[in-house]
Simulated scan of single mutants.
Amino acid sequence: MHPNERMKQSSFIDLALLYEGSCCSARYCNMFEQPVCAEGQMYQTICEFEERQCIEFKLFKNHITMDSSQEKCSCTAPCPTEWNPVCDKKGQTHANFCTFLNSKCYHKNQLNQTLEVDYSGVCCEDMCSAGQTSLTVCDSEGKTHTDICSFYVAKCRQMRRGTGKKRLQIAGVGPCKPKNPLFRSFDYFVNRSVNYRQTKTNRV
């Protein structure tokens, strides 16, 4: 039997029908959607709940409904639809501080995790696509970036966080050259020797 035919047969054996109809894939969730509660389970967005609701019905004919009265599902504070984004320390952008607080509550109650704000504004990771160019660059602080995008993310973070004495710049194309303190010390003593000789000559 040809190897391709064997692969096709094994693939068909591994496949199994889960349910009939279209897949219950989660639709795109926008940043303004609120967490919802259903039968004691918290869902971070309503579209995540709708996906679970669809699967429950197709597999078990069980219709689950939203319920915000559960104590464990208290992270559903209504939020305004104003666009005043904040970025958390996991690199997730939230539409405003209110939606961040709902997400923080969700992480604490459901995932037992701590979520904190990193800086105001859209997360720097969302502003460009990593790997969009393979050009390696060295920044002004001596750090190598494998592509332009990672450099701009680092520069954006520095500006948003207010860190760094000087604004990050591209120092050169290619990886940063390693700094050798022994070599610098040798140059230092050579320069001092030259300066000493010049000073001595001028005095004579």
Rank of each mutant, 00 (worst) to 15 (best):
C37G: 07
A38F: 11
G142S: 10
C138S: 05
T99G: 06
E20H: 11
S140I: 05
E56C: 06
C87Y: 02
H107Y: 09
K108Q: 13
Q53A: 12
M159T: 00
S193C: 14
T136V: 06
C98Y: 10
A95W: 04
G164C: 04
D118H: 01
C176Q: 09
F100P: 05
N112E: 10
D187I: 12
W83F: 14
H94K: 03
I64V: 04
N109C: 01
T136A: 01
C29M: 01
N112T: 14
E82M: 12
G162W: 12
K90N: 03
K179F: 15
C79G: 02
K155R: 09
T199E: 10
Q34W: 14
G174A: 12
T146W: 06
I13N: 09
A171P: 03
V194K: 06
Y188M: 13
T136F: 08
P178Q: 11
E116M: 04
T65D: 01
S134R: 00
E116R: 05
T199S: 06
P3T: 15
T99M: 05
C123D: 09
Q92E: 10
M42E: 13
E141T: 14
Y19P: 15
H63S: 03
A38G: 07
V122L: 15
D147Q: 01
A130L: 11
L15N: 07
H107C: 04
N112Y: 08
S11F: 15
Y28C: 01
I148V: 12
I170E: 04
S10Y: 11
H63L: 09
G162D: 03
K177L: 13
G131E: 00
T136C: 07
R197Y: 02
K8Q: 09
C24P: 05
E33I: 05
E125N: 11
I170N: 01
C23W: 07
C87G: 04
M127G: 09
C124N: 02
Y188Q: 10
G40V: 08
T65A: 07
G21Q: 10
Q44S: 14
D67P: 01
Q169F: 13
N62W: 00
V204W: 00
Q53T: 11
P181V: 05
C37S: 14
C24L: 04
T81Q: 09
V36L: 00
Y43A: 06
Q113R: 09
V194I: 15
S103E: 13
K166N: 03
D147F: 12
F189C: 09
K108E: 05
Y106A: 08
M159C: 05
Q158N: 07
G174H: 11
C124I: 10
S68K: 06
C29A: 07
K104V: 13
A130D: 01
Q41S: 08
C138P: 06
G142I: 07
M66T: 01
E51F: 02
C73K: 10
F97L: 14
C98P: 00
N109Q: 10
Q198C: 04
T65H: 02
V153T: 07
R203C: 11
C73G: 00
Y196V: 13
R27F: 00
R160S: 05
L111K: 12
Q169V: 10
